[in-house]
């Protein structure tokens, strides 16, 4: 099956599972309706819950999804659809209350029946999960703590929501409707078992060991891994993997990193990591020999795609150079003759990683390099400031629309580059962005 067909099939299954409660409500015999607003609110609650439940699908960690969908898009969709599902679920009690203010009595935690208690707890969980996800950075929650809270809350919400609809026992008294919620719950549970048990078991069978740590710039290191008792990872240039060091593959403490090595060298796996003050601070202190578990590779970018055949424009901001080094190393190993334009933005000379390697690639590849520095120094010839539209216009050839653009860096830089490329009339389908921060 080709990528397009898989994409359509995935979207079809997603929409079907999300709308399944409504489809069954309308096609199977149901108890007589009560009033419009009450039934409307129940239907909204049903579809909201089914949509929220679909978020149990670990979008970033299912290989067949990451093969066909862009990971940044999947993250954004997960974010948007989560918020929509929370909104739909909240409309359920809101409409009930407006329609019949006596419903308020059900909110008294002392006298409320279990069906209402479970509903209230589910809603409180939804509020918390929304709050901690949207405001994670503002409330200074580190990624791993947030991840644990997020997963526990998601599980609690699913359980309470399920108890709520089961105990209300109005439409779920119909076997078809009950069957829908049993199927949905099996899918949610199945996803948890797969991601927290089956996948870690598989990863445990393929450990890696730290071979060496190379310092690339002031606060940037490359960690070179070698496979321990297996042939290694089969990856493409610029793919991503989740790694955890010196812990069990069952832990939630894992982080995604771009592979920075050549796809033609499966016997070693390279990740280039910048010290951002968190988990990444420990990379430079690794001695070698540490055990590392790798979950991946993920990502659907391919330098062999027909759209990249005429040449590549690689735009890196800071540590965004990591996947670009993977592309350059792969191209160099396969003696690729395509024209490649590298734009690499940094703060100062000290923060430029891979200076020597990039110089070597200029010999082995048809590569033009442009450095930009906010604070230029004396050693490297660089443009002052950021990668601007004018700079791209000056350095790129006239036939630039046929080139493929790969951008990797922090979000503000990516947004600025997208604007630059739009201003230069570069077609959307020729541009690929990779955001360098957690969603």
């Amino acid at each position: 099956m080709n990528k397009k067909k898989i994409k359509l099939l995935v979207l079809f299954i997603y929409i079907l599972l999300t709308l399944l409660p409504l489809i069954v409500l309308m096609t199977f015999p149901m108890p007589e309706g009560r009033d419009f607003w009450r039934d409307f609110s129940i239907a909204l609650g049903y579809v909201g819950l089914a949509m929220a439940g679909m978020q149990f699908i670990p979008t970033a960690r299912l290989q067949f999804l990451s093969d066909v969908f862009d990971m940044d898009r999947i993250y954004k969709l997960h974010h948007y659809l989560s918020m929509l599902s929370v909104g739909l679920v909240f409309l359920h009690p809101a409409i009930l209350l407006l329609n019949n203010p006596y419903t308020l009595l059900l909110l008294n935690p002392i006298t409320a029946p279990w069906r209402a208690q479970a509903g209230i707890l589910g809603l409180a969980g939804l509020l918390l999960i929304g709050f901690t996800s949207v405001l994670r950075k503002e409330i200074k929650l580190d990624y791993n703590t947030w991840h644990i809270i997020h997963d526990l809350l998601a599980l609690a919400i699913a359980i309470f929501a399920w108890i709520h609809i089961y105990k209300v026992n109005f439409y779920t008294a119909q076997p078809a409707m009950l069957a829908v919620w049993v199927v949905e719950a099996i899918i949610w549970g199945g996803m948890i078992v797969y991601i927290r048990l089956l996948k870690p078991l598989h990863i445990r069978k393929r450990p890696f060991k730290v071979k060496k740590i190379i310092r690339e710039a002031a606060d940037t290191w490359t960690m070179v891994l070698k496979p321990d008792g297996h042939p290694g990872l089969d990856f493409n240039a610029a793919q991503v993997a989740w790694i955890n060091i010196n812990t069990s593959p069952f832990t939630l403490h894992r982080n995604p990193f771009s592979i920075s090595g050549s796809a033609h060298r499966k016997e070693e796996l390279r990740f280039t990591i910048k010290n951002l003050g968190d988990f990444t601070a420990a990379i430079g202190e690794l001695k070698g020999g540490e055990r590392v578990y790798v979950d991946g590779p993920y990502g659907n970018f391919s330098i062999d795609d027909p759209s990249a055949k005429k040449g590549l424009v690689l735009i890196a901001g800071g540590i965004g150079i990591a996947p670009i080094m993977s592309i350059l190393s792969t191209l160099s190993d396969q003696k690729d003759k395509r024209p490649v334009y590298l734009f690499y933005g940094n703060y100062d000379e000290k923060s430029i990683a891979f200076k020597e390697k990039i110089k070597d690639f200029q010999d082995s590849l048809h590569l033009q390099v442009t450095y930009t520095l906010e604070k230029p120094g004396k050693k490297i010839s660089a443009e002052k400031g950021f990668i601007s539209k004018q700079l791209l216009d000056k350095k790129l050839p006239k036939k630039r629309k046929a080139l493929f653009y790969f951008i990797c860096g922090p979000l503000p830089m990516i947004e600025a580059m997208e604007d630059n490329l739009i201003a230069l009339d570069i077609p959307d389908k020729q541009v690929r962005t990779e955001k360098y921060e957690m969603a």
């Binding site: 929409i15 999300t18 709308l19 409504l22 409500l25 309308m26 149901m30 007589e32 309706g33 009560r34 009033d35 419009f36 607003w37 009450r38 039934d39 409307f40 239907a43 909204l44 049903y46 579809v47 909201g48 949509m51 898009r73 954004k76 969709l77 948007y80 659809l81 929509l84 739909l88 997208e418 490329l421 739009i422 959307d428 541009v431």
Partner: peptide, 30 residues
Amino acid sequence: MKNKFEKRALLIMLVAAVGLSALFALLQMQ
């Protein structure tokens, strides 16, 4: 670019969810 695909997907799901819910409630009134 700039979230066009995501926004369209979100809008489709919103319209489908609210529209079908209203349709169900209307059918129940018959």
